[in-house]
Each structure stands twice: as structure tokens, then as C-alpha cells.
Simulated scan of single mutants.
Amino acid sequence: MAQVSDILDAKGRDVLRIDASATVLDAVEAMVEGNVGALLVDDGGRLTGIVTERDYLRRVTLEGRDERTTPVRDIMSAPFVYVGPDATIDECMAIMTERRFRHLPVLDDENELAGIVSIGDVVKFQSREQGVQIKFLTEFISG
């Protein structure tokens, strides 16, 4: 059964981070520049949360906060949910669906960051896997 590590091997393990004391505007700019929907948040060299586009909409826009002065730590989701690299793709999909997450950090056995997967990564991986299976079955039947 496919694991999260298979997705990370294909897409890479680079993850954008931001300091907890940075402004929300800094976070939005970093997400736009990186073309990502989430950043992991560091506080004193320790991962403490995740900030997403949804956090911005709910905790800045709707609450009327100023993105130029509000620190990321005030709007980030913490503690954050994560999986290990050996988690199955099905487990990731279940967590993302049940908790309504679009981004899931991956931490190894030493709680070191191994990467992050998005719902788009999971769907792309599943689609590719199904394509391979369909091709194999078609060749088998055609014989």
C-alpha cells in the first residue's frame, strides 16, 4: 500500500516556513511567492504551528485584524496535526477529509520535519496510481 513517503519522494521534501513573530502580511507574501497555501511556523527554532490561507480568511479578514501588524502566532493553527512518512495515503485522505485539512505536515520518528503533503498532492498521486493500474489491467485483458 502506498505511503506518504512515496508522495514526498516524487514531489520533494522542501517546506516553506515562517517565524511566529513575522506579520501575517509577510506570511501571505511568502505563500504567494512560493505558490503554496500553507507555511509551517517556527518559534525559536521549534515547529509550533501551521498557517494557511483559511487561517487568514477566518482570523484576519473576518475578525477585522490588521495583517500588517498581527503576528503569525496570533492566527496560526496550533497544535498542528501531522503524520509520519509511513502513514498510508488512505490514512492521509481520511484525516484530511474528517478534519477538513488541505495540508498535512510529515514528521519523522525524531519529530523532524520530513515534508508536507497537500490534498492536491494526494489526488495527483492517486490518479497516477490508478492510471498505472488501468494500463496494467488493459494489457492483461488484451493479452
Results as ranks from 00 to 15, higher is better:
residue 54 R to N: 05
residue 54 R to L: 10
residue 72 V to S: 13
residue 73 R to C: 04
residue 73 R to H: 09
residue 47 L to F: 07
residue 67 E to G: 13
residue 54 R to V: 01
residue 70 T to S: 09
residue 71 P to A: 00
residue 54 R to I: 01
residue 47 L to A: 03
residue 70 T to N: 13
residue 59 R to V: 11
residue 49 G to M: 03
residue 76 M to H: 04
residue 57 L to N: 07
residue 66 D to R: 02
residue 49 G to Q: 04
residue 73 R to Y: 03
residue 45 G to Y: 04
residue 55 D to A: 00
residue 55 D to L: 00
residue 70 T to V: 13
residue 50 I to V: 08
residue 69 T to D: 14
residue 73 R to P: 06
residue 58 R to K: 15
residue 65 R to N: 02
residue 66 D to W: 03
residue 74 D to A: 11
residue 66 D to P: 03
residue 50 I to W: 03
residue 59 R to T: 06
residue 45 G to C: 09
residue 71 P to D: 00
residue 78 A to Y: 10
residue 58 R to N: 08
residue 57 L to H: 05
residue 74 D to G: 05
residue 68 R to L: 10
residue 52 T to D: 14
residue 56 Y to K: 06
residue 61 T to S: 11
residue 60 V to T: 10
residue 61 T to L: 15
residue 74 D to N: 12
residue 68 R to Y: 08
residue 50 I to A: 02
residue 65 R to G: 00
residue 51 V to L: 08
residue 58 R to V: 05
residue 76 M to S: 04
residue 50 I to Q: 02
residue 65 R to W: 04
residue 57 L to C: 06
residue 50 I to L: 08
residue 69 T to G: 15
residue 53 E to C: 11
residue 65 R to V: 11
residue 47 L to S: 06
residue 55 D to E: 03
residue 77 S to G: 09
residue 51 V to F: 09
residue 74 D to C: 05
residue 69 T to A: 14
residue 64 G to F: 11
residue 48 T to H: 01
residue 80 F to T: 06
residue 71 P to Q: 00
residue 50 I to S: 03
residue 73 R to N: 04
residue 53 E to I: 01
residue 76 M to F: 12
residue 47 L to E: 03
residue 79 P to T: 13
residue 51 V to R: 01
residue 62 L to Y: 08
